[in-house]
Every structure is written in structure tokens, then in C-alpha cells.
């Protein structure tokens, strides 16, 4: 039986192998040796975390996607996957290092602030849309978080006049995929709402913020398409869009408008 009590063991196992992998990237090993270590350690860290989620899911008898703590679990699984895929595809060491760092932060939050929850799931959440809706959203958030980190890195480099145009290309390709997942998440949510409450769109506060997040990234995609040379504006847009995303994800619990939302997570 796997519960939050066992989470630290899995988390620290993942963190340690990931750190080994990251360290290996920057140590003066031979190329083949380095590659082997990186691939093995990153994938086994991801695997350990995945195993925890699967066992935890079977123990609590419902998808672990209801509370903020549980969504952080998915987030810290999916971000390293994104980082790793970008590493495999484009050889970006730093994208992977950043994404692992981000994931570790989320794991540590869950270790030091474990939210111990009951096993109940209210009837409206018992839907076939629940799992795809949340997973797709977490994927979008993972991709967009990495794009935000890249934007911040870009803004810092611009300040020091060391800007690397590659940043623009990577950021845009991340957002393209992130936006696709964001769209799927939004629409799965709409289809689910129709099944559960009879309407696909009710301007519920969470829906308002999800729409806003979507519009912000839509704006970025079109602006970068039409004004590709406006580097600084693009990077700022990305950073701001991610703030909107964060408000949508958990800031909403603190907003006056959201007191009536069906989506605010009960703690």
C-alpha cells in the first residue's frame, strides 16, 4: 500500500538519480559515457516517480487529480518528460536541467507540505473526461512552464547582451505544443461540463481564467508569427502569460470572484 507517507522515499530516489544525470552532463566525461549516464538516470528517475503515481492511484481508488497536491504530482512527472524529450530531440542540456529543477521544487513542496486527503470523489467528478482533461492540462502547464523559464533566461541574456536567437525558436516550439494541449484541456473541460451540468460553458471563474490563459498564448503565437523580429516583446509576453496561467491554476483560490466556483480545490 502506497500513500503520501511513502512519497519521500520515491521522491528522493528520483531527485538523487536526476542530480547524478545533470551533474554528468557538465562533467568532463567521454561523450558515449556521458550520454549513457544521462539517459539512464533521467529515465529511471521519471520511472520511479511514475511507479509512485500508479501505486498511489490504485491505493486511493480514484485518479489522484483532485487536489493541488495531487496535481503537483503530475506536474513533477510531466516537466522532466518534456525536458527529456527536448534533450533527446535538440540536445538542450539547459532545458533539461531547468525542468528537473522545477520538478524537484514541486516534489519538495509535496514532501514538506503533504496534503493528506480522504478517498472520496464527488459524483460530478466521476467522469470519463476527468483523467484526459487533467492530464492534458498538466502537460500544457509543464510545457508552458519550461517556456517561461526559457523566456526569463532570454530576458536576462538580453540584459547582458549575450542573447542567443535559438531561445526564440525553442520557446515558440514549446508554446506551439503547449497551446495545443491547452486547447484540448479547455475543450475536454467544455465537453465534460456539458455531460455533468448541461452546459459546455458557464463563465465560471475558473473558466474565465482558463479562457484568459488561452487568449494570452494565442496572442503570443500570432505576435511571433507576424513580428518574429520583436524579441523582447515576445519574451515579456511569455512571462506575463505564465503569470495568468498561475493565477488560473491556484491563484484563483484567493480571488474574490472565485468564491462560487465549482472548480476551487477543497483543501
Amino acid at each position: 500500500m502506497i500513500t503520501w507517507h511513502e512519497f519521500p522515499y520515491f521522491a528522493f530516489a528520483s531527485i538523487i538519480v536526476w542530480l547524478v544525470g545533470i551533474a554528468a552532463m557538465y562533467l568532463p566525461f567521454t561523450d558515449t559515457f556521458k550520454k549513457a549516464i544521462v539517459h539512464i538516470s533521467i529515465t529511471s528517475g521519471i520511472a520511479a516517480h511514475l511507479v509512485f503515481i500508479v501505486l498511489f492511484w490504485t491505493y486511493i481508488d480514484r485518479p489522484p487529480m483532485r487536489t493541488l497536491g495531487e496535481t503537483r504530482l503530475w506536474y513533477s512527472l510531466l516537466i522532466p518528460i518534456v525536458g527529456y524529450l527536448y534533450y533527446v530531440r535538440w540536445r538542450y542540456n539547459w532545458v533539461m536541467a531547468y525542468s528537473i529543477m522545477l520538478s524537484v521544487v514541486f516534489m519538495l513542496i509535496n514532501i514538506f507540505n503533504p496534503e493528506i486527503h480522504d478517498k472520496t470523489l464527488m459524483p460530478a467528478l466521476q467522469s470519463i473526461w476527468f483523467v484526459p482533461h487533467v492530464i492534458v492540462y498538466m502537460f500544457a502547464y509543464a510545457l508552458l512552464a519550461v517556456s517561461c523559464i526559457i523566456a526569463i533566461k532570454g530576458l536576462v541574456l538580453l540584459q547582458f547582451k549575450k542573447f542567443n536567437p535559438e531561445i526564440i525558436v525553442v520557446a515558440r516550439s514549446l508554446v506551439r505544443a503547449g497551446f495545443a494541449f491547452l486547447t484540448l484541456g479547455l475543450l475536454f473541460g467544455a465537453l465534460w461540463a456539458k455531460e455533468a451540468w448541461g452546459h459546455y460553458w458557464t463563465w465560471d471563474p475558473k473558466e474565465v481564467w482558463a479562457l484568459l490563459t488561452w487568449l494570452a498564448y494565442m496572442l503570443y503565437l500570432h505576435a511571433t508569427y507576424y513580428y518574429p523580429q520583436k524579441t523582447k516583446t515576445q519574451l515579456w509576453l511569455l512571462a506575463i502569460a505564465f503569470i495568468v496561467l498561475l493565477i488560473c491554476w491556484f491563484g484563483i483560490n484567493y480571488l474574490a470572484t472565485a468564491q462560487t466556483s465549482v472548480h476551487t480545490y477543497t483543501q
Binding site: 515558440r172 516550439s173 506551439r176 497551446f179 495545443a180 494541449f181 486547447t183 508569427y225 518574429p228 523580429q229
Partner: peptide, 10 residues
């Protein structure tokens, strides 16, 4: 979108 690469206008 997921399976294609984007391009910019220019």
C-alpha cells in the same frame, strides 16, 4: 499543431 512545426510570416 502538435505534429507540425511552426513557421513565422517572414
Amino acid at each position: 499543431l502538435l505534429f507540425t512545426r511552426g513557421s513565422s510570416n517572414d
